[in-house]
Design a protein around this nucleic acid. Sequence first.
DNA 1: TATTTAGTTCTGCAAATTCAGAACCAAGTA
DNA 2: TACTTGGTTCTGAATTTGCAGAACTAAATA
Lengths: 155, 155
Amino acid sequence: MAEFKITQAQKELVEKLGVFYEKSGMQPAACRVMALLIVSDQTELTFEEILHTLGISKSATSGAINLLLTANRLEYITRPGDRKRYFRAKILNWKVDMLQNMSQMTSIGTLLKEINKQRPKASKEFNNILAEMISFLEFLNAEIPFLLKKWESKK
Amino acid sequence: MAEFKITQAQKELVEKLGVFYEKSGMQPAACRVMALLIVSDQTELTFEEILHTLGISKSATSGAINLLLTANRLEYITRPGDRKRYFRAKILNWKVDMLQNMSQMTSIGTLLKEINKQRPKASKEFNNILAEMISFLEFLNAEIPFLLKKWESKK
DNA sequence: TATTTAGTTCTGCAAATTCAGAACCAAGTA
DNA sequence: TACTTGGTTCTGAATTTGCAGAACTAAATA
């Protein structure tokens, strides 16, 4: 067993980042795994290293890893003549993630439209606000690609 | 008891929007209350109307309403000589909400910076990606006000 | 063939969440 | 003073979640 260790300071960062991820509704163990792979000096860790460093059970580790793999937050590489998988955070496509994240935020737009359609003409002020929100969400959605471009060119 | 009712279609919209709100981690009952106040023809509903329309208990209604009040998602008005409170969704400041929402998203930037500081110089590629994310989040945060302005002027 | 490795799957418990029901309370009304 | 109204607060029960532990498996190795 390779003796992989992280410092106290790193442990604290794992917890902090873990809690941040928890806000998105993911289960604690999976959040710790994600956080560990970001904070750790080594960017590629094995099942055993994750399990030992976080002090969680095999089943929890297995569950967390598979959750993250299907959520496309993790990937792994293998090495010739080595049965272990080396997991790493899939942050290379953070741009895609962020765009998805934002368009997910704007996904309420569709629902709001549906709601606005059935609202009575009477409640004008309220309807107008809804319409404004929808309009802004649409605008935002359209604007995101340009934002990315603008940032790229500014670097 | 005023006989306030919503249609089947509206009930379905309340559920849909309710589920959407649930994704943000709020408890189901509170999400239904929010959704009802958006979908309903009447924009101001009493405790009793909410309770009856959603078919939930007094305690659940009380809990949900107070949760939403402290979360600043709801407000209420009163009428002279009427002890009832009339609750309504606080969507008027959706712009503020959305900005908060976005800056909350960018709040991970601070944490990422902290993490990047402690990362070893060795893992260069990984560190560069982190640095890029941080840079983009900062850019985004700075850009949001301009986005709002741009949208306002386009209307 | 037995053993090790790298996990997966199943069972079940412990904790947390969520809500209903009932008791309660304070202000206004009869 | 008793009753009604518009809630709040306090159990407790039903789910749901999250994970440990143990048994299991498939591939590689001895």
